[in-house]
Design a protein around this nucleic acid. Structure first.
Lengths: 241, 241
DNA sequence: CCCATCAAAAGGTGCGATCATTGATGAGGC
DNA sequence: GCCTCATCAATGATCGCACCTTTTGATGGG
């Protein structure tokens, strides 16, 4: 419209529209059309579409235009795509997918972190202790607790030395934040959860991969149960169709 | 040089050079320089660089140029980046990272696949049976066995209904192929491995998440041991530094 | 001697025109 | 009546140019 906006604005707008379903798979866009819509030259639109094409969200074909691709071909692991989906209509499903991914990753990440030596471990133990303090004071749903939790799990994914795990740390943090925002975090965390965090941190510090993995799995079994329950509720709500 | 090559050629060339280390972090490129090198206009180069920027491999700065970014900021989960790293100098490390990721994912994927119902399961059982046949004939290192193996694990990651797991299926297949190419696959697979594959397929078919996860973990413990051993060997070889 | 300010250079950003490709369409022949 | 092929036009791909932002360094004043 009026504002001759920045390059990334157009990218975010279109990315969000596709991720959010405003533009459905099979819809066809043309450069000229988009250029007019955003009041910019075709070159700008072109670069944006090239990025979206790289992300698998559109496919350029001559004589046809830019076809919006189905979600199946998106680069669903790209942080940008994740962000768009988290912001839009696919939020719930994206949170579930990410949580499942997190459940899968963290035990192995713990194992790795315990194997590679005692790099960032003192901090993990401190964080776990702080979580216990806050939890016992009924502050489990505060921003500070969330920050500690995010830091803990980020460190867990980062310490293993596997860059692919580390790359997902940001998205996992987003999941934790989202869960708190939705009010799913209890003010008084379960005793076992706190203890497993502490044991996990300790196991990594002393370099015990087996125990680290076991306690991480214990932490995430709780998470899995939550998601499982939530999806059952959702299924129960939406199956009448 | 001479050939006014396609857009994607330039992307692949530069991506591979950065991923392979020919262009080290901190190196600075300019549009004019690249345009001359590839005999194309600046516009083309610009679009390529914008994609590489999206992938976190370069960073554009005015007055400076395009600075190659360290591996830490790459989108290491992007299939294209993975392909470039697998093709170049980082191949060994990329294989290890992917294997660790695979070890983390598949048990949870099995759990998911067993939970969501009996969608693609008959084929899994058939594949496992075929693997046993071939294995008993000492054909564990043949292309056919590899194809079955790839199909099995792809199906495993795909059947859970989590698109993020599915997105990694292609890269996991690449790992399996790479392992066979390196001659690491035995002609006579271990009995336990074959049995665990069969049990895994059966558990998914009957919808038993716990057993599916357990057998998947059994399958991958072997894989983990291989990697662990390989990295120890490598460490032993390279630590004299 | 140091700092502030300004100007020039370097390079990313944006534009409109032109090229090449491909899907459609219609005519011709079997 | 249907199939085939040639022509056409729509649209993405590419190009060269002009603009604007940023950085740097040089110069002048304190």
């Amino acid at each position: 419209m009026a504002a001759p906006v920045l390059h990334s604005d157009i990218l975010n707008t279109l990315g969000a529209e596709i991720a959010g379903g405003d533009l459905a798979a099979g819809d066809v866009l043309t450069l000229a059309e988009l250029a007019e819509r955003f009041n910019v030259s075709r070159t700008v639109v072109r670069e944006v579409m090239r990025i979206l094409e790289t992300l698998g969200m559109v496919r350029a074909k001559r004589r046809v235009g830019l076809t919006v691709q189905p979600a199946g071909s998106w680069s669903v692991l790209d942080p940008q795509v994740i962000a768009w989906r988290l912001a839009g209509a696919g939020r719930a499903e994206q949170l579930r997918s990410l949580t499942q991914l997190r459940v899968a990753l963290e035990p192995t990440a713990a194992r790795l972190a315990a194997s590679t030596g005692q790099h960032a471990c003192p901090e993990l133990v401190q964080l776990a202790a702080r979580m216990r303090q806050l939890g016992e004071q009924g502050l489990g749903d505060t921003p500070e607790y969330l920050a500690i939790d995010v830091r803990f799990h980020t460190l867990l994914l980062t310490s293993g030395g596997n860059e692919m795990f580390a790359a997902l740390a940001g998205s996992v943090a987003e999941v934790l934040t989202g869960r708190t925002k939705l009010g799913l975090t209890p003010a008084h965390p379960a005793h076992t959860a706190v203890e497993n965090h502490e044991e996990l941190a300790r196991a990594i510090e002393v370099g015990d991969p087996v125990r680290a993995e076991a306690h991480a799995r214990a932490v995430l079994d709780t998470v899995w149960a939550e998601v499982d329950y939530a999806s059952q509720v959702e299924r129960g709500r939406s199956t009448p169709e």
